[in-house]
């Protein structure tokens, strides 16, 4: 105890923590306020709003899983090369040879779990009517985050470059062929012509832009890799900041007025 007391008296400790041990209201408030990570929280919350039977903690679990996915994802990037010649073998190595070889498992099962927790979070928010004013906008941000979660999972699906990956993505992206006006097998696409030359073909439609080719190939692997590792997480990160900020600005976890 004396050692701990001495430790907390050092200049180093004091330079990091601006409060005493949080066993009283003042230091508990300071603990939240003076910490950049904790200060997402308000100082005080509704008693009804911290009940696990009310929130189900699904939003929190989703955010935690996003962190898990980020960390395990970055670790996987050290070994994985998103090139057709290597991708599958790198996956095999990650599965069989790489030390502490559960990174891929953590990443994959965490991703599945995250999809579930997002849905359950949304279910809770709906059933408690928490999308109602003043939280309409934040519900919208949440819907976009839900879509981004599914897109993250979908783009990650291709990266192992095995049969499951390529065919799930083939089936999924082939629907883009049928986009009205913008897909070459979509209704109305035949109407878009320059004279006799069709503008929307297999080599110029929205699916081509997504895949970087007419079939799921090397360019697609690279694209999905970049989308999966950089592009979508970045947007999701920004929107999460907005989402959490608005939870507080709109009055915290909802409760009867």
């Amino acid at each position: 105890m004396a050692l701990f007391k001495n430790l907390t008296e050092t200049q180093i400790w004091k330079s990091i923590f601006r409060h005493k041990y949080p066993d009283n209201t003042r230091d508990q408030a300071l603990a939240v306020l003076s910490n950049v990570f904790l200060h997402l929280h308000p100082i005080k919350v509704r008693k009804s709003g911290v009940r696990m039977s009310f929130t189900w903690c699904m939003g929190g679990v989703t955010f935690f899983l996003f962190l898990v996915e980020t960390i395990t994802g970055i670790l996987l990037m050290f070994y994985f090369r998103p090139v057709v010649e290597y991708a599958f073998n790198d996956m095999k190595d990650l599965r069989e040879v790489t030390p502490m070889g559960i990174m891929r498992e953590l990443h994959r099962w965490g991703a599945h779990l995250m999809v579930i927790t997002v849905w359950l979070h949304m279910l809770r928010v709906f059933l408690t009517g928490s999308y109602k004013p003043p939280r309409e906008f934040n519900w919208n941000v949440g819907v976009i985050l839900l879509v981004l979660t599914l897109l993250l999972s979908f783009t990650g699906y291709l990266l192992p470059w095995d049969q499951l990956a390529i065919w799930a993505v083939t089936v999924g992206t082939n629907m883009a062929r049928a986009t009205p006006l913008l897909g070459h097998e979509g209704p109305g696409a035949a109407l878009l012509t320059l004279g006799d030359i069709p503008i929307i073909t297999a080599g110029s439609d929205v699916r081509f832009g997504l895949l970087g080719g007419t079939v799921v190939g090397p360019a697609t692997l690279m694209r999905f890799y970049v989308l999966h590792c950089v592009f979508i997480p970045m947007i999701a990160g920004v929107l999460m900041a907005v989402h959490f900020w608005r939870v507080r600005k709109d009055g915290g976890i909802s409760g009867p007025l």
Partner: peptide
């Protein structure tokens, strides 16, 4: 919920501990 919504509790420890535990 209405019975408890007027009452406020400190975020530390009531919320942060359960988040940590989860």
């Amino acid at each position: 919920e209405a019975r408890e919504s007027k009452k406020r509790v400190m975020c530390w420890p009531d919320l942060i501990y359960s988040e940590f535990l989860i």
